[in-house]
Design a protein around this nucleic acid. Structure first.
Lengths: 131, 131
DNA sequence: CTCATTGCAAATCTTTTGCATTCCC
DNA sequence: GGGAATGCAAAAGATTTGCAATGAG
C-alpha cells in the first residue's frame, strides 16, 4: 500500500485551513502558507488539497464559481455571502429541517443539503445608504 | 448605446435553455444548439451565455464545481443532485422560510438563498441495494 | 451601407502531470 | 537507502479575446 508521509508542506497547509475564519481559495491557501514556507509551489497546494479532501479532513465549497476549501469537523453549518463586499461567512444556524433520510414528494431521498444565503453582512448593512 | 441584434445563434441558444428540463453545461448547450446550427462556435456560446446572463434571461448555477445555466423566470426553485447517477433535478418546493429582508442573528440581512439537496433520485432509490 | 456578431485561432487562466531532486521514515 | 513528496516547467482544460469575414437593420 501507499504510505502517506507527514511533511512540512502538508502540515502548514492543514494548519492554514484549520485556522481560517471561513473557506479559502487555492490562492488564499498558497499565499498564507508561503508565510511559513516561501518556496511552496502551487502544484503542491493542489496536490495537498486533493489529498486532504480524499482523507475527509477538508472539503470543497463552490461559491460563485470559485472553489473554496474549509476544514471538516466544524459541525453542520452553511455560508453567507455578502453581496456588497464579497466576503464569505460561516453560519452556525441552519434554516432548513431536512434530517438525513427525509423523503420528498416524488421519491427523492435527502442525504445532505447545502444552503448559501446571499445578502448584506453586518458591516455592509450598517454602511448601507450611507455612501 | 450598443444596439443588441437578434441573431439565429442567440435565438437557438435561448431556445435550448428554455426547453431544457434542468440546468445545462456549456457543452450541453453547444451540442444541442449544433443540431440547428452545425457551424456554431464555442466562443459564441460563451458570449451568448454571458449576454443572456447580463440581460437576466438566464442565470448560472454552480454544482459540483461545474457551471450550469438555466432560464430565469421559472419561479423560485432549488436543485436536487443525485449522488448516484449525478443528474440534477429541479425542485419546486422550498425547504427554507427566509423571506427577502429577514435579519439573522448577528445582523446579516438575507436577500436571497440557494439550496441544493443531495441524495438519491426516485430511480436510484428504487434500484438501491438491488445491484 | 454600418457596425454588431460570428467563427476561428491565439491568448489566458486554472488545474494537472512528468520528472529529477529532496527528504521522511 | 528507498520511495513518497516537492518544485519546476510543460501539458491539458476551460474560458476569453483579436480580427477578418459575415449578416442584421
Amino acid at each position: 500500500m501507499t504510505a502517506t508521509r507527514a511533511t512540512r508542506q502538508r502540515d502548514v497547509i492543514s494548519r492554514v485551513l484549520d485556522h481560517a475564519e471561513g473557506p479559502l481559495t487555492v490562492g488564499d491557501v498558497l499565499e498564507q502558507a508561503k508565510n511559513d514556507l516561501p518556496s511552496l509551489g502551487i502544484a503542491t497546494v493542489y496536490r495537498t488539497l486533493k489529498l486532504l479532501t480524499e482523507q475527509g479532513r477538508i472539503h470543497p465549497v463552490v461559491l460563485d464559481g470559485e472553489t473554496l476549501y474549509e476544514a471538516s469537523g466544524k459541525g453542520h453549518h452553511h455560508h453567507f455571502s455578502c453581496n456588497r463586499c464579497g466576503r464569505v461567512f460561516t453560519l452556525h444556524t441552519c434554516p432548513v429541517s431536512l434530517p438525513k433520510g427525509t423523503a420528498l414528494a416524488g421519491g427523492f431521498i435527502v442525504q445532505s443539503h447545502e444552503v448559501t444565503l446571499y445578502g448584506l453582512c453586518p458591516e455592509c448593512a450598517a454602511k448601507n445608504g450611507a455612501e
